[in-house]
Design a protein around this nucleic acid. Structure first.
Lengths: 201, 201
DNA sequence: CTTTTGTAGTTAGCCTCCTAACCATCCTCC
DNA sequence: GGAGGATGGTTAGGAGGCTAACTACAAAAG
């Protein structure tokens, strides 16, 4: 992700200092906000580097995980489906589940298909639609990579006790639910737009 | 950031279910991990959308903030520096502070310079180096945009009490410090590499 | 004083994300 | 049953990340 975040978070005193100049700056909110993004960034880049070692990006890995359903796989195995081990999904469903646009999903599926991890098949009933299916290669890949992936998550969260994890989840859920309700007004964007009051022109 | 993250986090029972199949899956660690990334993603995209309304990306905004030092500005004002209101920084310093590569910083500075928010000046003592300076336009822009930016942070963190914020910061700090110590082994990456044991070839 | 090593910045090429526009197909409704 | 709208998927073009390779310069080592 590296999303251009301050590597060294400002000390709390500096935030207090800033609050003097900017009355809108709430030091504790700002501190929590920065820590949230900074920590998430570090954790995310750790996972991304780990996945990169196995030659896959986080985005593509996410698509594979969405398509992968081990429980479903066992059921299908009984049917001897062979090459269709997990339930097929359409690009639109995948895009919605992953929270990216359909155009982005098209690109991801393109590269996954090029690498032989995924297959596109036209839908027999609706000719607009496609089904995206995992290949056996992808199945083997996921089985091979998952344990290390889970171990890394465990290792990252190791310093927190069970109750601390519960607390963290509870607090994050509060923030997430609140954030989901905040809708940024959709105004027309412009390049480094200046409001009339502050515009030099 | 939208980093292709599951929009609907799996329920805890599903994680328990998955743990049966994958002994390496620690349900509470996985839950905390996913909530951390999911929440951060939501919060981040909120901020990014807000900045987009003002025609600037998070990355460019971060560079401007790094170059901006209101306290320094006040000092310089006494010197009547005029067009050099904040301490100059080199691209390398900016890249380190922002946690991106120098190549990325070059690109960001390019676009900022194109938009007239930043200026490059050669260093008089070391001819390899450049100084990056905020323009007056950028100063006005930051003064105009900052209050809304701070308000948004406050609003995002509103559902947490002061003590909850402290707790959140404490838990996140634990995770961050731990994550910083985890070094992913640097092996040669490959495209969707399969280990010999699971390779079909 | 020359050579080697290291550092600052850029360039080139790739990947993933976005929006906007575009077809093709389905569905609804007159 | 044909027109208009909704939906699924792709394409085109842009931005911000990355690595790797390159240039220019500075500094250390011989």
């Amino acid at each position: 992700m590296p999303l251009l975040l301050l590597k060294d978070l400002p000390r709390y005193e500096c935030l207090l200092e800033g609050a003097k100049e900017f009355p809108d700056l709430d030091p504790s909110a700002c501190e929590a906000f920065l820590h949230l993004l900074r920590t998430s960034d570090e954790v995310f880049s750790l996972v991304e580097k780990d996945l990169a070692v196995h030659g896959i990006s986080h985005g593509r890995f996410g698509v594979l995980m969405l398509l992968w359903n081990p429980a479903q796989r066992r059921i299908d195995a009984a049917h001897a489906d062979g090459d269709c081990p997990s339930g097929p999904r359409t690009p639109a469903e995948l895009a919605d589940a992953a929270g990216v646009t359909r155009a982005t999903m098209t690109g991801l599926i393109d590269t996954l298909e090029r690498d032989g991890l995924v297959r596109r098949e036209p839908d027999p009933t609706d000719r607009r639609m496609m089904s995206v299916l995992l290949t056996e290669k992808a199945e083997r890949f996921l089985v091979g990579i998952s344990p290390a992936h889970f171990k890394l998550m465990t290792r990252i969260m190791a310093p927190l006790s069970e109750s601390e994890r519960k607390t963290l989840v509870r607090l994050l859920t509060k923030v997430l639910e609140n954030a989901s309700e905040i809708a940024v007004p959709a105004t027309e964007p412009a390049r480094a737009r200046l409001s009339p009051a502050e515009s030099p022109y």
